[in-house]
């Protein structure tokens, strides 16, 4: 990755701190598009350490972020016109909230990084501004005990940083709240699509092979006639769980993701029935009901990890009921389909 954001150096107490631009370029934009699709996502990093924006001095604010480049870019492009320092923690290329959950955006790394860059020699104050979501990994009072620096939790979104500064370092209710709007959900879809690609390929291969079976054994003609529609149905069921459910999330009845996914899967199945494309006979149609709703339900359930409001206890409770149901549905669907081919 070419680091196009360096624009020079700032010298302060005998150290040269890299100065970075607050403008993001087309390369940054393309990089963002690529990681959303999961391409080189684990390598989209900046080096941990201290950076400068604008024309900072010893009294300037210190903003702390993760070394995932999307996080770094979100911060720097919202610091236009601000003179400040950016302290990048080593989160192994993971965003602030997820890294905080894993503990890599954490107290230990922050304390360590403050010492490594000798922050107390760069600035003459004890004020650190952290993204609020970093609080999942950072204990403010422990950082204070160990380094003397006061952690101020800023807004959830980097876009609110200037408002946060201008209101005297106070994050109001709106700045503190995580929302999960349509645009937020849409951005996550490509990555989830790529994340489940092996499940998808496996399921498509499985049903392609089944489609070629009949009382006459495996036949080229059956593969040709039935294989395509079978693969398409699996693909539609997958899209139902990973696109339709997230997009319509607030409008689908129920709270369990697996149930929401079941409903969207049922919608897809009904559409196929109406289009007279759900199968050649009753048994096949019934089998696709079970298979399509299960695939959609399973993928939607996996989407709990992308959502911003599900708890571990809740997901465990949901899975206790949903997983046995999904396994049962899948088995019933496959058995009906295979039996239907031989009678």
């Amino acid at each position: 990755m070419k680091n196009s954001f360096f624009v020079g150096n700032v010298t302060i107490s005998d150290s040269a701190i890299p100065l970075i631009s607050t403008k993001t370029s087309f390369t940054d934009f393309m990089g963002a598009v690529m990681v959303r699709w999961g391409i080189r996502r684990d390598h989209y990093r900046v080096s941990p350490g201290l950076y400068a924006v604008g024309n900072p001095g010893p009294g300037s604010d210190v903003f702390v972020t993760a070394n995932y480049k999307l996080s770094f870019d979100a911060l720097r492009k919202n610091l236009t016109g601000v003179n400040g320092w950016i302290l990048v923690l080593d989160t192994k290329g993971v965003n602030v909230w997820c890294a905080a959950g894993k503990g890599t955006f954490g107290t230990k790394e922050l304390v360590n990084r403050i010492r490594l860059v000798s922050l107390d020699k760069i600035v003459n104050h004890k004020r650190l501004i952290l993204p609020q979501l970093g609080a999942t990994g950072v204990s403010a009072y422990k950082v204070k005990e160990e380094t003397g620096f006061n952690v101020h939790y800023g807004p959830v979104r980097a876009a609110d940083i200037k408002r946060f500064i201008n209101s005297g370092y106070r994050a109001d209710k709106e700045m503190r709240k995580v929302t999960f709007g349509f645009r937020d959900r849409i951005k996550l879809i490509p990555n989830d699509f790529m994340y489940g690609k092996y499940y998808l390929a496996g399921a498509m291969a499985f049903f392609f092979i089944i489609s070629g079976m009949s009382g006459r054994g495996l036949s080229y003609k059956d593969f040709y006639g039935q294989g395509g529609p079978a693969i398409l149905k699996i693909l539609l069921a997958y899209f139902s769980g990973i696109i339709l459910t997230p997009l319509l999330l607030p409008y689908i009845p129920g709270r369990r993701f697996s149930f929401k996914g079941f409903l969207t899967g049922f919608l897809v199945f009904l559409s196929l029935v109406l289009l007279k494309s759900a199968g050649n006979d009753y048994m096949e149609i019934v089998s696709w009901f079970f298979i399509i709703t299960t695939v959609s339900s399973f993928m939607a359930m996996n989407w709990t990890g992308s959502s911003t409001y599900t708890s571990l206890s809740g997901v465990k409770k949901e899975m206790k009921v949903s997983i046995p149901l999904q396994i049962g549905f899948a088995l019933i669907g496959v058995v009906i389909q295979v039996v239907g081919k031989f009678i």
């Binding site: 905080a100 959950g101 979501l133 609080a135 999942t136 990994g137 950072v138 204990s139 403010a140 009072y141 994340y195 993701f257 359930m301 996996n302 709990t304 990890g305 992308s306 959502s307 409001y309 599900t310 708890s311 571990l312 206890s313 809740g314 997901v315 949901e318 899975m319």
Partner: peptide, 22 residues
């Protein structure tokens, strides 16, 4: 778990973790 981790008197407790089926 942010509340529990940042409570200076340990008044808040929660068994924190990821709410992710995968």
């Amino acid at each position: 778990g942010a509340c529990a981790l940042n409570c200076p008197v340990q008044a808040v407790t929660v068994k924190s973790g990821v709410g992710c089926a995968a």
